[in-house]
Simulated scan of single mutants.
Amino acid sequence: MRSTERGAFTREERKAALWALLIAAMIALMALMIQQWTRPSLGPWGADQAAASMPGVLDAQPIASRF
């Protein structure tokens, strides 16, 4: 390392770090935008089966309450 340089990193290293930070920020922003446009995957229970109700589930009550 030359004695004329200041700091622990060279100019090229700081420039590479800045580019890496900008690219990571762009990827994160793009992921957030894509997430807003898409619905979560329900896997095999998606589409038609997502609205199917299970009998007795809405009427289910706990057997005993300790409170």
Rank of each mutant, 00 (worst) to 15 (best):
E13T: 04
R66Q: 05
M54P: 00
P40N: 08
L22W: 06
L32K: 12
A16D: 07
I63K: 11
S53I: 07
L32P: 00
D48A: 12
A16Y: 13
W45F: 08
Q36Y: 05
E13Y: 07
S41E: 11
T4L: 08
A20G: 07
Q35N: 12
I23N: 04
A17K: 09
T4S: 09
L42P: 01
A20Y: 09
E12W: 08
T4D: 09
G7W: 14
S53K: 15
A31C: 14
P40W: 11
R39D: 01
L58W: 06
M54D: 02
M30E: 07
R14S: 03
Q49P: 02
M1S: 10
V57C: 08
M33W: 13
E5V: 10
L42E: 06
S41G: 12
A60L: 15
Q35H: 10
E13P: 01
P62F: 08
A31F: 13
M33T: 01
Q61S: 05
F9D: 05
G7E: 02
A64E: 10
T10V: 03
F9P: 00
S3R: 13
R14H: 13
W45C: 09
I63E: 13
P62A: 05
R66D: 01
A20C: 07
I63N: 04
Q61D: 07
G46N: 14
D48R: 09
I63Y: 12
T38F: 03
R6I: 04
E5A: 15
S65K: 11
A51L: 08
L18I: 04
T38R: 08
A51E: 10
P62Q: 08
I63W: 13
E5G: 05
W19V: 05
M54S: 06
I27G: 07
S53W: 12
I27L: 14
D59F: 04
E5R: 15
M1T: 08
A17R: 13
P44V: 04
M26S: 06
L18R: 15
M1E: 10
E5H: 09
I34N: 02
W19S: 06
R39T: 00
K15P: 00
G7F: 10
L29H: 02
